[in-house]
Simulated assay, not measured.
Amino acid sequence: MEIIRAKKMGFCFGVRGAIRTCHRVSETENNKKYILGMVVHNKHVVKSLEELGFSVVEERDLLENKDNLKPGDIVVVRAHGTTKAVYDILKERDVIIYDAACIFVTKIRDILLEEKAKGNRIIFIGDKEHPEVKGIISFGENVIIYKDLEELKNGELDSNINYSLLTQTTYNKDKFAEIKEYLESNWPNVQIFDRICGATYERQKAAEDLAKNVDIVIIVGDKNSSNSKKLFEISKKHNENSYLVQDETEIDLSWFKGQERIGITAGASTPEDIIINIENKIRGNF
């Protein structure tokens, strides 16, 4: 049996940067420390940061005035960013803000503000329930959200309105290409911005290549992680024996019977030690 890792997998620079920010804060700051929600979408990472002394403050508690923040407390804003309303509340609370929002997220947000200032209507492609999407679109007005090409085609665009199209940073690059082709052929009044994270695309392409060349693929990532779920979808498309697991406890050893080439990839929020634990469990039983 051979275990083969995807060429690109695991922590992206945005996640790594957010975690480094938390570690730096834990080493240099003595005030009460909070993480705004899940700093990254992985429960193991959040638990490790809680062990460093961080508490979690939820956005809904801030919005409902049910938080315990005091002036001078420290709040690390997660890699996905947050909504304009929450940023405003944090400033009103007079807390010390460490904004660990990924640069790709802040770039899209800046473009949205620029295009809004021009008077363009904003179209956003992504998961409207994802915190990254909620955060970015909160800086706009009457943003139109579609989850995919099918929804976009069924939408009601107006040829007399100038639109600007933005996407979730982790959106599937191939699906985005289909959307771009459709719009360029049918709606020349839509300006398209491709700001999908390069690391996301590299991981998606590596997962596809891996799935085509192994007997089984294990995708390691949190079940709430958008990019992990997309890696699973891509892998499943090319290899029916694809499984998304959060850690070694979810591994079913029966999956590996008769399999010779085991592929492993991981979402951008997945720690290396979780990946190693899974590899060790497989090697220890076969």
Results as ranks from 00 to 15, higher is better:
N142K: 14
N142D: 15
V143G: 05
I145Y: 06
I145E: 09
Y146S: 01
Y146W: 12
Y146P: 03
K147E: 15
K147G: 15
D148W: 07
D148S: 06
L149R: 09
E150L: 11
E150Q: 14
E151K: 11
E151M: 12
K153W: 13
K153Y: 11
N154G: 15
G155I: 14
E156D: 15
E156F: 12
L157D: 09
L157A: 07
L157Y: 08
D158N: 15
D158T: 03
S159Y: 12
N160A: 14
N160W: 06
N160Y: 12
N162T: 13
S164V: 08
S164K: 10
S164R: 09
L165T: 09
L165Q: 08
L166I: 14
L166A: 13
T167F: 09
Q168R: 14
T170H: 12
T170C: 10
T170I: 11
K173W: 06
K173S: 11
D174S: 12
D174P: 00
K175C: 06
K175P: 01
K175V: 01
K175W: 05
F176S: 10
F176T: 12
A177G: 02
A177N: 15
A177M: 13
E178R: 14
I179P: 10
I179L: 11
K180C: 07
K180Y: 04
E181H: 11
E181C: 02
Y182E: 08
Y182T: 05
Y182A: 03
L183W: 10
L183N: 08
E184A: 07
E184G: 05
E184L: 15
N186Q: 07
N186S: 10
W187E: 04
W187T: 01
W187G: 00
P188G: 14
P188S: 13
N189F: 03
N189L: 02
V190K: 04
V190F: 04
V190Q: 03
V190Y: 04
Q191M: 07
I192A: 03
I192W: 06
F193A: 01
D194A: 01
R195Y: 11
R195G: 00
I196Q: 05
I196V: 13
G198S: 08
G198Y: 10
G198T: 02
A199M: 05
A199Q: 14
T200L: 03
T200G: 01
T200W: 05
Y201W: 00
E202G: 00
R203W: 03
R203K: 10
R203C: 02
R203D: 05
Q204W: 05
Q204M: 06
Q204T: 04
Q204P: 04
Q204K: 05
Q204G: 02
K205S: 09
K205G: 00
K205P: 00
L210A: 10
A211Y: 09
A211T: 08
K212V: 06
K212F: 06
N213T: 08
N213V: 01
V214N: 12
V214R: 11
D215I: 01
D215K: 02
I216E: 10
I216P: 09
V217H: 03
V217C: 04
V217I: 13
V217L: 02
I218W: 08
V220R: 08
V220Y: 08
K223F: 13
K223R: 12
N224Y: 04
N224W: 00
S225W: 02
S225C: 01
S226V: 04
S226Q: 12
N227L: 08
N227F: 10
N227A: 05
S228Q: 01
S228C: 01
K229D: 01
K229F: 00
K229E: 07
